[in-house]
C-alpha cells in the first residue's frame, strides 16, 4: 500500500462527500402563500411548503410590527399544503405582514391595509425557534441545486491546485533545465484543463437554472474563459517548438505568467469594487459563508474539495507516467 494511501483517500472522500451531497435533505421552507395582501375581516391563506411536515396542529401566525396574530384555525391538506384561517383586526402597525408557519417565515411580506397604532392584546406569543437538524439551507431560486456546490466548485479547486502543481514544476524546470520537470508541468496543465472544461460546463448548467441563461457577460465567467484560453495557448506554444530544451525553458516561463494571470482573472478582478458580478463570492456578493447553516455545507464541501484535488493529482500522475513511457519509446 506504500504510495497508494492518498489514492484510496481520494476514492473514500469522494464517495462519502458525494453520498452526503445527494442524500442530506434540504431544510423545510415556505414556497408560496396564496394571498398578496391582508385587510381587516376573515382571511383564508393556503400555505405551500417544501419538505415540510404540516398537520392540523401546525402553528401559523402573522408577524406585524413586533406583534403577532395567531391563526384561529389551521387545516392541513397534506404534508406540504396547509389552510390557515385568520380574523384580521384593523389598525395593524406596519404595511408589511410576514406569514410564519411551523417557525418558518415566508420571505415575501403581505401588503397590509387599514394601519393604526397596533393590534389589541390577543395572547398570541412569538413562535418558538426551530430546533436545528443536519440539513442543507433551503434558498429561494437555488432550491435543491444548492447541492451543485459540492460538484461545480471543487472542479475549480482541483483545476487551480493542478495549475499550482504545474507552475511548481515549471519553476523547477527553469532552475534545473530538467526535461522531466517540463513534462510533469505539461501533464498537470492537461488534466487541469479537463477540470476547467468540467467547471465551465457545470457552471453554465447551474447558471441556466439560477440566472436564466447558460452564459452571462459576467467578470467571473469571462475571467474563467480567458484563463482556459491562456492555458490552451500554453499547450499550443509547447507543441510548436521542436527543440526540447528550448521548449522546456519557453513553456516554463510562459507557465509562470499564465499562473499569475489565473490568479488575477479568477480572484483579483472579480473582487474589485468597481465591477459587478452575479457569481457568489464576487462583486460584493456573499459566498455561502454567511448562511446560518453554513457549517453543514462546509462539513461536506471540504472533503469533496480534497477528494477532487487528490483525484486530479492521480489523473495527472497517470498522464505523466504514460508520457514518460511514450518518451522512452521515441528514444
Amino acid at each position: 500500500m506504500k504510495g497508494w494511501w492518498w489514492k484510496v483517500l481520494a476514492v473514500v472522500l469522494l464517495l462519502i462527500a458525494s453520498i452526503a451531497a445527494l442524500r442530506v435533505p434540504l431544510a423545510p421552507g415556505i414556497l408560496n402563500v396564496s394571498k398578496l395582501s391582508l385587510s381587516p375581516g376573515p382571511a383564508e391563506l393556503v400555505i405551500t411548503g417544501y419538505s415540510t411536515r404540516f398537520d392540523d396542529a401546525t402553528q401559523v401566525l402573522i408577524a406585524n410590527g413586533g406583534q403577532y396574530l395567531c391563526a384561529s384555525r389551521t387545516k392541513a391538506i397534506d404534508a406540504t399544503h396547509l389552510n390557515a384561517y385568520f380574523e384580521v383586526p384593523a389598525g395593524m402597525r406596519d404595511d408589511s405582514s410576514y406569514v410564519i408557519a411551523d417557525g418558518m417565515a415566508f420571505d415575501t411580506p403581505l401588503y397590509t391595509d387599514s394601519l393604526g397604532s397596533g393590534m389589541a392584546d390577543n395572547g398570541c406569543a412569538a413562535p418558538a425557534p426551530r430546533t436545528k437538524a443536519f440539513l442543507f439551507p433551503n434558498l429561494n431560486r437555488l432550491d435543491e441545486s444548492i447541492r451543485n456546490l459540492f460538484f461545480h466548485v471543487p472542479m475549480w479547486f482541483a483545476m487551480i491546485a493542478l495549475m499550482g502543481i504545474s507552475v511548481y514544476h515549471s519553476i523547477r524546470t527553469l532552475a534545473s533545465n530538467s526535461l522531466e520537470q517540463d513534462r510533469k508541468a505539461a501533464s498537470a496543465v492537461h488534466v487541469g484543463l479537463v477540470f476547467c472544461a468540467l467547471g465551465l460546463v457545470t457552471g453554465a448548467l447551474w447558471a441556466r437554472s439560477t440566472w436564466g441563461d447558460f452564459w452571462t457577460s459576467d467578470v467571473k465567467l469571462n475571467g474563467a474563459a480567458v484563463t482556459a484560453l491562456i492555458y490552451l495557448a500554453y499547450l499550443v506554444l509547447r507543441g510548436s517548438i521542436a527543440d526540447p530544451y528550448k521548449r522546456a525553458r519557453l513553456a516554463g516561463i510562459y507557465n509562470i505568467f499564465a499562473f499569475v494571470l489565473l490568479v488575477l482573472f479568477l480572484f483579483v478582478v472579480p473582487r474589485l469594487n468597481a465591477v459587478d458580478s452575479l457569481h457568489p463570492g464576487n462583486g460584493g456578493n456573499s459566498g455561502f459563508n454567511d448562511l446560518d447553516l453554513d457549517n453543514r455545507l462546509r462539513v461536506v464541501f471540504y472533503p469533496a474539495v480534497l477528494g477532487w484535488i487528490l483525484l486530479g493529482a492521480w489523473m495527472c500522475e497517470l498522464r505523466d507516467r504514460a508520457a514518460r513511457a511514450a518518451e522512452h519509446l521515441d528514444r
Partner: peptide
C-alpha cells in the same frame, strides 16, 4: 420546480 434536475445534469456531465 425543485431544480434537482440541474444537480443530475451536473453530476452527469462530470
Amino acid at each position: 420546480n425543485s431544480k434537482l434536475n440541474v444537480v443530475v445534469a451536473v453530476v452527469g456531465v462530470i
